[in-house]
Simulated assay, not measured.
Amino acid sequence: MKLTVIGCSGSFPGPDSPASCYLVEAPFENRTFRILLDLGNGAFGALQRHIDPGQIDAVLISHLHADHCFDMAGLFVVSKYHPDGTYPVIPVLAPAGAGEFLATAYGSNDGCSMTEQFDFRPWVDGASMTLGPFTITSALVDHPVESYAMRVGCEDGVLVYSGDTGPTDALVDLAMDADLFLCEASFLESGTNPPNLHLTGAEAGDIATRAGAARLLVTHIPAWTSREAVAADVASTWAGAVELVSTDDTFEL
């Protein structure tokens, strides 16, 4: 399994990174199977430095905030109007109502045109499903809108992605013994932070510690937040291997 960071800026695209998007690849039936974890604003352009959009096998959307899903509009345009032909329909795992929401964001008049290119499948809390070589398990986490963390496993190992969340035991359970734990840390311990929204670096480290994760990858740091301060927060609760990810970083299992 290979993870490539396409975008990792928290809440909005920053000067050095698009918003959230992660490419996950693994061998499957004599080819490479590719899924995206989120496709936030600014990420679709950066993605094309790594793969042709026609190579996307599925998209997993954690929640329907702009920084995690709005570049689905760009993928829709390319998949429908590419001069070499329309793409096959792409499975999209997302919160219920994602098709209508994204069609409205795109500007569709009928509210459902994105179903021409995307097979929207709603997340079910705690359920597992198979896509190519991957077994994917979801967990409802703590955010103002319906938001899911994802456990992506294959024969090479397990990657867990937090999506956006406040502290929750559901994420600890999902991340148990993960080889890679890709976890958001949008807040600082020194700040006055609203509840039920995001994690601090210390909270991300605590969840990784309690879950027994092998490696912590910290992401979703907003452009206005000091990465050094986040790293210091993480170090207060986590003693294992850790990296604050950047665009174009790759990690392999």
Rank of each mutant, 00 (worst) to 15 (best):
S9H: 08
G10V: 00
F12E: 09
G14C: 03
P15D: 10
D16L: 02
S20W: 00
Y22A: 13
Y22H: 14
A26G: 10
P27Q: 06
P27H: 09
T32M: 13
F33Y: 15
F33W: 07
F33R: 07
R34F: 04
I35K: 09
L36T: 07
L39C: 11
G40R: 00
G40D: 06
A43H: 03
H50Y: 08
D52F: 11
P53R: 05
D57S: 14
I61L: 12
H65N: 08
C69D: 10
M72K: 02
P83V: 05
P83F: 07
P83D: 03
G85Y: 01
T86Q: 15
V89S: 07
V92M: 10
A94Q: 07
P95F: 09
A96R: 06
A103I: 00
T104I: 07
T104W: 01
A105D: 05
A105E: 13
Y106R: 11
Y106C: 06
G107P: 05
S108M: 05
D110V: 14
D110L: 07
C112E: 08
S113I: 03
E116K: 09
P122C: 03
W123F: 11
V124F: 00
V124A: 14
D125V: 05
D125N: 15
A127L: 02
A127P: 11
A127F: 03
L131Q: 06
F134R: 02
F134C: 10
I136V: 15
T137G: 09
M150A: 15
C154S: 12
E155A: 13
E155C: 01
V160G: 12
G163A: 10
G166N: 04
P167M: 05
T168C: 15
A170E: 11
L171A: 07
V172K: 08
L174G: 14
A175K: 04
M176G: 10
D177A: 07
F181Y: 14
E184M: 08
S186T: 15
S186V: 04
L188E: 08
L188Q: 10
S190A: 15
T192G: 04
T192Y: 01
P195H: 04
N196F: 01
L197P: 11
G205T: 09
D206I: 00
D206P: 01
T209H: 05
T209C: 00
R215G: 05
V218P: 13
H220Y: 00
T225M: 09
S226I: 03
E228N: 04
A229D: 15
V230L: 06
V230A: 12
A235K: 12
S236N: 02
W238E: 06
A239I: 03
V242Y: 14
L244A: 02
V245E: 10
E252C: 07
E252R: 11
L253R: 03
L253T: 06
